[in-house]
Simulated assay, not measured.
Amino acid sequence: MAVNLPSQRGKGRRAPMADINVTPLVDVMLVLLIIFMVTAPLLTAGVPVNLPDSRAKPLDQEQKPVDMAIDAQGRIFIDKDEVTGTLDDRLAQIAGSGTPERPPQILLRADKGLDYGRVMRVMGELNRAGLNRVALVTNVGDQN
């Protein structure tokens, strides 16, 4: 069995190299993989829990949204009027003002120190009334 080694050819002449060096390609691909693995969880993270401020720009609105607020004592206000009766009646009235294809948008403002469960109960009532276009409002400012 004959083996053709490059050192057995004529002196001073080298045979052209026929294989491709893939080591740099593998190195670059591994670095890119690591970069994507590190940055992917940061891209899918939600809104931080303790974030009262935001740099988000206001959304364009087709119709005037309904402003709803919950103060530190847990009182609920709809367009600066305190809800004194049942919340269900007021939400049914608001839901009736929109179309079934396009229910009114609710801008929900809740006090930062308020119990999370209280806000979720109000959001559950909104959902039960068919008002599922709810936006949580924050203050505009630096996040530093």
Rank of each mutant, 00 (worst) to 15 (best):
D71I: 08
D79C: 01
Q61I: 04
A45Y: 08
D88G: 04
A72T: 08
T86K: 12
R90K: 15
T84Y: 11
Q61H: 05
M68V: 14
A69K: 14
D53W: 06
A72P: 00
R75H: 11
D53V: 00
P65F: 07
G74Y: 13
P58N: 07
V66F: 07
P58V: 14
T84Q: 13
L91Y: 06
L91H: 13
K64R: 15
Q73P: 00
V66R: 09
D53T: 02
A69L: 13
R55G: 06
D81F: 09
A72D: 12
R90D: 09
I78V: 14
L87M: 04
M68I: 05
Q73G: 04
V49L: 03
P58F: 06
D88L: 09
R90H: 07
R90L: 07
A72W: 12
D79W: 02
D60P: 00
I78N: 13
P52A: 05
A45P: 00
V47A: 13
D81H: 12
D88Y: 01
A56L: 05
E82K: 13
K64N: 10
K57M: 10
V83Y: 10
D88R: 12
E62K: 15
D60L: 04
Q63P: 00
L91G: 02
V83S: 11
E82L: 15
G85E: 12
D89Q: 15
K64A: 11
G85R: 05
Q73I: 03
L91R: 09
V47L: 12
T86Q: 13
A69C: 03
E62S: 14
I70T: 08
E82Y: 12
Q63V: 10
Q73H: 04
Q73T: 15
V83C: 11
Q61S: 00
S54V: 04
D88S: 13
N50D: 08
F77R: 01
P48I: 00
V49H: 01
P58S: 04
R90G: 06
I76L: 13
T84G: 03
Q61M: 05
P65Y: 04
P58H: 12
A72S: 06
A56F: 08
I76M: 08
D53P: 00
